[in-house]
């Protein structure tokens, strides 16, 4: 079996997540051939073959050209599987390639079993085992689901691809995220509010607990999107990454993108009315309760 592994580059630098595709290829015992639209100056540490197109010419976001380049490689290599990350790059490009090849795509793979892929469903409350029926399969991998046992090493044999800058989609600029505000990454205690707080006034309960514990408060994305907390307090894949001694998740379901920001916490307490909430998978203690009753009671005890 042969796998094309689609690595990613951003602002001229290889993204480390690219190695997760290599870990996946090891797991399914496939011969790995890498593909990268990136730069000679930032190549993956990988002893195999790498097709490289110059991002300065092709553009880092130019789906039509990236698709064309990938199709060229697929035509040459005739792989059985093409592996992307389930990332802003992968979920944009993978379905285009799947369509062009008439191949089935399996998204957000977390595991594989006997030729089938395991993917989450319903906010990780369920797992689905999915199989592609054709000769070629396109997959995207959930961030962090596969990791290499050893440090990657070696240098690739590079085969350069001729690229051009065609395409209707015009990339104008990168815009950085907001800076400043609270730095939650150094906080020893973080108490976070999720959509379960119900209304903005209830954020005060979360803040009060954070204060009683001597920590900072954070928030999940819906709380930030609704304007109830500033963006710099968001914990997760598109927010901050925290690693406190204690993380208290209040009314947070535990979506994978939230977990990405807090799973390095030493001790996790979750308060949730839903006993099956996926946060329970990472919580050391799951308190099944209405936060509107529990938080004030806990804060009162701490302050007593």
């Amino acid at each position: 079996m042969k796998a094309i592994l689609v690595a990613e580059s951003r602002q001229g630098t290889l993204l480390p997540g690219s190695y997760e595709t290599l870990a996946f290829a090891e797991k399914i015992v496939a011969e790995p051939v890498m593909f990268l639209v990136g730069s000679q100056a930032s190549l993956p540490a990988f002893p195999g073959r790498l097709y490289l197109a110059d991002a300065d010419v092709a553009g880092e976001y130019n789906p039509e050209e990236h698709l064309r380049l990938l199709q060229e490689v697929v035509a040459k290599e005739a792989p059985q599987i093409i592996v992307f990350l389930h990332s802003s790059y992968g979920w944009d490009l993978a379905p285009r390639l799947a369509f062009a090849l008439g191949a089935g795509q399996v998204s957000e793979v977390v595991d594989c079993q006997e030729g089938a892929m395991v993917v989450p469903a319903c906010n990780s409350k369920l797992r689905r085992v999915v199989r592609s029926s054709g000769d070629v399969t396109v997959v995207t991998l959930q961030a962090g689901a596969f990791s290499l046992a050893n440090e990657p090493g070696g240098s690739p044999q590079v085969e350069l691809l001729e690229s051009r800058h065609d395409g209707q989609v015009e990339f104008l600029a990168y815009e950085a995220g907001e800076l400043g505000g609270v730095d939650l990454s150094k906080a020893e205690i973080v108490v976070s509010a999720g959509r379960g707080i119900g209304k903005p006034e209830n954020l005060a309960m979360v803040e009060a607990l954070a204060k009683a514990l001597g920590g900072e408060y954070g928030a999940s994305r819906p709380v930030v999107d609704a304007g109830w907390a500033e963006h710099t307090r968001q914990v997760g894949s598109t927010g901050q990454t925290v690693s406190p001694k204690l993380y208290v998740a209040c009314g947070i379901s535990g979506a994978i993108q939230h977990l990405a920001g807090m799973k390095k916490s030493e001790f996790v307490v979750a308060i949730n009315t839903d006993r099956d909430a996926p946060i329970g998978e990472v919580a050391d203690v799951l308190v099944v309760a209405d936060l509107k009753q529990f938080l004030p009671a806990l804060t009162a005890r701490l302050s007593a």
């Binding site: 797992r127 689905r128 085992v129 592609s132 029926s133 329970g280 203690v285």
Partner: peptide, 22 residues
């Protein structure tokens, strides 16, 4: 026709360890 099919849907394996307070 479909390009992918579902073999089965199941619950995730419980990683467990966590305590549940009710």
């Amino acid at each position: 026709s479909a390009l992918t099919t579902t073999d089965e849907t199941r619950y995730p394996e419980k990683r467990g360890g966590g305590l549940v307070l009710e």
